[in-house]
Structure formats: structure tokens, C-alpha cells
């Protein structure tokens, strides 16, 4: 399912680099993800996994890497095998 996350990052993160070249703990913002792209990514993740991130989880850190996104989904009860 991290593949699903990576695909969403590919579609919505607007990264200047290939997502597949990034480690799962690589910082997506440092890789060039803009604030607006990160919002689009959050919306896409909510849609795709049918969850809602509460406001307290809407921080930069929660969406900064594939691992961080998987951990956030896990917190909401979505199991993401690594």
C-alpha cells in the first residue's frame, strides 16, 4: 500500500524528481513539494483511503515522507504494510 501512497505523491505532489528514487523516509518538501501541492496530496489521500485527517494532524510533519503518511493513516486505522 506504500505503492498507493507513492502513486498519489506522483499524481499530486508535483515533485521535480521521480518519487521512486526517494527513500520512504525522504523529506518530500526538501524534494520540492510546494505547500499547495501538499494540500492537493492530502485531499487525494483522504479521497483514496476514505478518511478525514482531523485538524490536529494537518501539520507539515504528518505529510513530509511516505513513512510519515503511512503512520498517519495507521493512526486513523488504515493499515499500510511497509
Amino acid at each position: 500500500m506504500t505503492d498507493e501512497i507513492r502513486q498519489l505523491i506522483k499524481d499530486f505532489g508535483r515533485l521535480p524528481v521521480d518519487v521512486d528514487t526517494l527513500a520512504s523516509n525522504a523529506d518530500l518538501y526538501q524534494a520540492g513539494m510546494s505547500s499547495h501541492a501538499s494540500v492537493n496530496l492530502m485531499l487525494a489521500i483522504e479521497d483514496h483511503f476514505d478518511v478525514e485527517f482531523p485538524d490536529r494532524m494537518l501539520t507539515r510533519g504528518v505529510f513530509e515522507s511516505v513513512d510519515a503518511i503511512a503512520a498517519a493513516l495507521a493512526e486513523l486505522g488504515i493499515k499500510v504494510p511497509v
Binding site: V39, M42, F53, P54, L58
Partner: peptide
Amino acid sequence: QTNASLLLIAKD
């Protein structure tokens, strides 16, 4: 412009 983007995802 920033707010418009954040409002898409913020809830409360």
C-alpha cells in the same frame, strides 16, 4: 492565495 489552498483541507 495560501488560505484558499489551506481551506480546502482544514476542517475546524
